[in-house]
Simulated scan of single mutants.
Amino acid sequence: MRKTTRSAFAAACAVLAVTAAACGTTSENSGAAQPQDPQAACGGPDGQYTIGMSQANLAEPYRVRMDDDIRKAAERVPQFKDVQFADAAKDNAKQVSDVESFLTKQVDLLMISPNEAAPLTDIVRRAYNSGTPVVLLDRKVNGDAFTTYVGVDNEAIGRQAGEYFKNVLFPDGGKILEIKGLSGSTPAHERHDGFMQGIAGSKIEIIGADDGGWERAEGQEKMDALLKAHPDAQAVYSHNDPMAEGAYLAAQAAGKADQLKFVGIDGLPIEAGGIKAVEQGRLQATFLNPTGGEEAVEAAKKILVDCQPPEKHQTLPTELITKENAGEVYARLNQG
């Protein structure tokens, strides 16, 4: 394992609180990103490497799948002797502590899917400026102090969803409810902003919205209240499939499921995922949001084994999934 400036950084941080201002060197605490030497972290194909993966939570099926994808991909890289996983359980302070723990252990590379952007920005910057490569997955932090980001263009997904509502579901206009993701997470803002771009110029109106925290139970609870406040709603745009399924359950309990259309995002190719929900008619559509687990491991291999810098932003592909193509997409994504 490398012994660089981050070793001293990790040792110092181990005994300090999350908010300690004196942790690390001046450059490590600087508000600006300090460019990493692309060769510094690389030990080549003869090395053995430890990776720390800090997950925002494991309450979402999407994040369970992300960890599984990382685990499986890492098993195919013989140099990756150990991938350690931590679950922040939607607690920002715990996630900061998890990252500091990985730094104390002197892992060779960090993978992080931030719970919320702002609370994780400082520790990610400090890790990056200390020389530890940082791979962000699905969610971003503020600024550019990270080695590479792997994920979809969430604003583009939101825009495509808006265009689907405008061009297919409600070409003459409609009244929409929006179930948003966790307010401090970057996809929630981007998927909303993109949606507003997509419905621009139409007669579609968002008559009610609330934060469903990315979870089905919370989405169901918020949808129940929204339906009572807005009984004239015609459809639901949800920032992920579990919240869309929760909204469907709330509408079903109110006897209105057949009167509303539901659209989500994620398209997990599992029995309890969004593709099957589309195929079975609960959702009108979903948009594929790959976990990026395999691509994150490939980026780690480039950095640690191949001595090649990855692209700063790795944008993953998405696609619209409707009842017409759900079966084909499900089979394709489960090949191999």
Rank of each mutant, 00 (worst) to 15 (best):
A10R: 03
M196C: 08
D241N: 10
Q34M: 09
A296M: 09
R139F: 02
G194V: 05
A59W: 12
I321E: 02
G131C: 06
L226N: 03
G267H: 05
I270W: 06
A233L: 10
G47L: 05
Y248E: 07
A272C: 05
S54D: 10
A257M: 11
V96P: 03
A59L: 13
A40P: 09
N29I: 09
Q55P: 01
E75V: 02
C307M: 09
D153A: 08
Q95C: 02
H192D: 15
M223F: 03
D224S: 14
A86F: 12
C307K: 01
L333M: 14
A73Q: 04
D193E: 14
L304K: 05
D68M: 10
Y49A: 00
M111K: 00
Q55K: 14
S185V: 08
E311K: 09
V297A: 03
V135L: 03
D138F: 06
L110H: 02
G336V: 11
I206A: 01
E294H: 11
N289K: 09
A229D: 15
A272T: 15
V297C: 03
D306W: 11
P317A: 04
T4M: 09
K140L: 11
A89D: 13
I51H: 05
V135I: 15
Q55T: 14
G292T: 06
D69W: 07
H189L: 13
L137A: 12
A8R: 11
A20H: 11
L110C: 03
G212N: 04
E294V: 14
G336F: 14
P242Q: 08
V141I: 15
Y128L: 05
T25V: 06
R6A: 13
K105P: 10
Q280E: 15
G273M: 07
K90G: 00
P61C: 06
E319W: 06
P187R: 02
M53I: 11
A251R: 00
L182S: 11
K222Q: 10
E328V: 13
I70R: 00
L109F: 07
Y164W: 13
K261C: 06
A188W: 04
T315A: 01
N29E: 15
L182C: 04
T186G: 02
S202K: 05
A12T: 13
L169A: 10
E319L: 12
V329G: 00
L333D: 06
I270C: 04
A118V: 13
R159T: 12
A73I: 07
Q280R: 12
A118R: 07
V305P: 01
L268H: 06
V150M: 02
E298Y: 14
P309A: 14
T286P: 10
D144H: 08
K105F: 06
D306H: 10
